[in-house]
């Protein structure tokens, strides 16, 4: 009986591929990457990530801030055990240790400023400084940004992201005092580079 159960567990992925388009397949093979849930620095595109990563967990082990957290099969399907960073919980401090230990090249050794985990996008409807009428002074995102005056600038005391330099580390998202009902912040990291065919070197 146990063997049968075990085989069932092995067969599940292929059974799911055999099914045309089903909810099982969608959740099983779907990338867990979404707004504020990102891959570590230097990651290959999502189309390759699940196949290249061997889930050895060394990036998670080496991460000194415990930013990288692997998730299990129920949450992420075939992406179980792959490294994920939820920047609203613990952002990436760009120490670049994980890219050095990856044995498979899923995280490629890159320089700190070349990291493109995503792009910070300010929600001007939610950000306190962008509200009409009542003006509130808040520049938390600006203060915490590791690339101040490059990736983020102040335009009449309001933060503006410079796309060219933003690494998507999520420090601004983590620091943002505004939390919306859906769990998002007034500044969120959108994984715009994760789904591209070719990643900018």
């Amino acid at each position: 009986m146990e063997r049968r159960e075990f085989l069932k567990g092995l067969i599940l992925p292929i059974a799911a591929t055999a099914l045309p388009v089903s909810p099982v397949r969608a959740s099983l093979f779907q990338s867990p990457i979404k707004t504020n849930v990102l891959r570590p620095p230097g990651a290959v595109p999502e189309s390759l990530f699940a196949s290249k990563c061997i889930r050895c967990g060394r990036c998670a082990e080496v991460c000194p801030y415990r930013s990288i957290v692997p998730r299990d099969f129920l949450e992420t399907g075939v992406n179980a055990g792959t490294p994920l960073i939820d920047v609203t919980k613990v952002p990436c401090y760009l120490c670049m240790k994980c890219v050095e230990v990856c044995p498979t090249g899923t995280l490629r050794p890159i320089a700190q400023q070349e990291t493109r985990m995503g792009l910070a996008v300010i929600d001007r409807y939610a950000c306190m400084t962008w509200q009409e009428g009542e003006f509130m002074l808040c520049r938390t995102c600006y203060n915490v940004c590791p690339f101040k005056e490059k990736a983020i600038k102040l335009d009449e005391l309001r933060p503006v992201i410079i796309e060219e330099y933003c690494t998507g580390c999520g420090l601004c998202t983590h620091g943002c005092p505004v939390t919306l009902e859906n769990g998002k912040k007034a500044v969120n990291i959108e994984p715009i580079y994760a789904f591209g065919k070719v990643r900018k070197e």
Partner: peptide
């Protein structure tokens, strides 16, 4: 074969 059909290395997380 299963890993190649599914496109993900199955043994790595099982």
């Amino acid at each position: 074969a299963l890993a190649m059909i599914a496109g993900v290395p199955i043994f790595v997380f099982l």
